[in-house]
Computed example of a mutant assay.
Amino acid sequence: MSTLEITRDGPVATIWMNRPEVHNAFDEALIADLAAACRQLDADDSVRAVVLAGRGKSFSAGADLAWMKRAASYTVEENLADAGALAAMLRTLADMKKPTVARVQGAALGGGTGLTAACDIAIASSTAVFATSEVKFGITPSAISPYVLRAIGPRQALRYFQSAERFDAARARELGLVHEVVAPDALDAKVAEVVASLLQCGPKAQGAAKELIRAVAHQPIGDAVVADTVQRIAHLRATPEAKEGVAAFLEKRAPNW
């Protein structure tokens, strides 16, 4: 993976986008490498949590200019394939069974905002800057829209998808795009703190919690939703992980995960 560096610290894997000379901007190679890395780490049972980060001054400044220039000459079929690869990568990241944490510093523009939103948890440096800037180039933030809309809602998206305004980390937290904003020198400590909390919890339960959110979000609270939640908890209670979690709590010890 020429565009990435993957590091391990015990059960925690960090995917470093490693194109600092272009502020980790997207091109075909970075998109393909990110998708492959997410699949690889999701299939590795020794990995409990995944951090997505960027080397250098920026998290990701969005589309690489050379890639955009190439895409401008694509046929409709080539554009469909190109856009499909980006959409598939974002979905692969968003659908990972294990918790994902975005470590965001500097520019997180366009696709960088999309990556932030596609992760389960986002921790930003106070220096981070965000934008859905696609309309400045005569296009729309289509591929990232499901994840950004999930984070900030349609009302705020109506403003930022059309204005392409840049907004800082404090505003990103107000909008719901990021969970925490810290000083630059505290970013790694805050990410480590959040990851430590994640590691205390049952891995299969965390995957089930992500599925639960997808199933229940924006659904009316009716018989079908209530019945579904009953089925989910009943099946989980019967799993070895749940039995170990309850036993560890009652015996006042750490669970075996």
Rank of each mutant, 00 (worst) to 15 (best):
Ala196Gln: 11
Ser163His: 00
Asp223Ala: 08
Ala196Gly: 13
Gln162His: 14
Gln206Asp: 09
Ala36Tyr: 07
Glu193Val: 04
Ala186Leu: 01
Leu212Cys: 11
Val246Lys: 07
Asp168Glu: 04
Arg70Asn: 01
Pro203Tyr: 01
Asp44Gln: 08
Ala49Pro: 11
Val76Lys: 08
Ala108Glu: 04
Arg214Lys: 13
Val148Ser: 12
Arg70Val: 02
Ile213Gln: 15
Ala128Val: 05
Arg237Pro: 02
Gln219Phe: 00
Gly56Lys: 08
Ala208Ile: 08
Pro154Thr: 15
Val12Ile: 15
Ser2Trp: 09
Ala122Pro: 00
Gln206Thr: 09
Ala61Val: 09
Arg19Phe: 02
Ala254Tyr: 05
Thr113Tyr: 04
His23Trp: 08
Thr113Glu: 08
Thr7His: 07
Gly54Ile: 03
Val12Phe: 14
Ser163Asn: 02
Leu4Ser: 11
Leu149Met: 12
Leu175Val: 05
Glu77Ile: 01
Ser142Glu: 07
Ala122Ile: 02
Asp223Met: 06
Arg237Asp: 11
Val181Phe: 00
Val195Tyr: 05
Ala32Gln: 11
Ala87Thr: 13
Ala107Met: 09
Leu250Thr: 12
Gln200Met: 09
Gln105Asn: 10
Val182Arg: 03
Ala234Gly: 02
Ala217Lys: 07
Ala192Ser: 04
Asp95Ile: 03
Gly245Ser: 12
Gly56Gln: 01
Pro99Glu: 06
Arg214Leu: 09
